[in-house]
Amino acid sequence: MQAQKATPAAVFHVHGVTKIYRMGEVEVRALDGVDLDLYAGEFAVMLGPSGSGKSTLLNIVGGLDVPTSGQVFFRDWELTAADDTALTRYRRHALGFVFQFYSLIPSLTARENVALVTELVRDPMTPEEALKLVGLGDRLDHFPSQLSGGEQQRVAIARAIAKRPAVLLCDEPTGALDSRTGKLVLETLVRVCAELATTTVIITHNAVIADTADRVVNLHNGRVSSVRINTVKRSPAELEW
C-alpha cells in the first residue's frame, strides 16, 4: 500500500477529546485526550476491554454525546460545536447506526423498519433493495418477533445502510449473537461496506474480529494505545470464536 501517496480524506478528525462523567462524588474519566483520524471508505475496528471508553468515543463521534473538552470534525464541520438540531440533521443524513441489541421497532415489519429511515432522506435505496443486500429479500413483511436474532441484526444493518450514509457506526454488532450468526452478520457488514464504500467503524471487545478490519485502533483507559494497519485481512468466514 505504499503506492498510495495521496492520503484518502479524513472523514473524522478527533482532536484532544476528553470525557469526564460525574457520578455522585466519583469522577470517571471515560476518555482522556484522544486523538484519532478515520478515513473515508475504511473498515476500522476499535478494540478495547469494557470501560476502555470505546463506546463513549463512538457516541461522541456519532453526535450522541458531547466531550468535556476537545473537538471532533466530520469532514470540515465541527461536530462538537453544533447544536441539537444540527446534530440531528447530521445523524439523519450522514450516519448509520447498528447497536448491540438490534433496537428494531417491534411494531414495524422489516421493510417498514427500513422504510422508517429511507423516508427521512433524499435518494435512499428502496427498503427492498437494502434488505436484499443483507440477504433478507424474502422476509420483508415479517415483524421482529418473527425473525431470529441474526436476522434482526441484519435488518438493523439494512436500516443503517439504506440511506447510503457516509459513515456506519456499529457498537458490538455481534455481541448478542452466537458465533455462526455473528460471522454471518459480520460477513454482511464487510460485503455491504465494500460495495457501498461506506466508512465503517466497529466497536468490539472481540479481538478476533479485528482481523477483518483495514485498521485496528486499540483503546485503553480512555486513550488510544495503538493504531495498527491490518496488512492481511481475513474474511469473516475464516474467523473462529
Binding site: 456519532g62 450522541l64 441539537d84 438540531t85 440531528t88 440533521r89 445523524r91 439523519r92 443524513h93 450516519l95 447506526f97 447497536f99 433496537s103 421497532i105 417491534p106 422508517l116 429511515v117 427521512l120 436500516r159
Partner: peptide, 14 residues
C-alpha cells in the same frame, strides 16, 4: 422509551 430513543438516534427530530 427505547424505541423512541432509537428513533432519535436514527435522526428523527424531537
Amino acid at each position: 422509551g427505547r424505541e423512541l430513543a432509537v428513533l432519535r438516534i436514527l435522526g428523527f427530530t424531537r
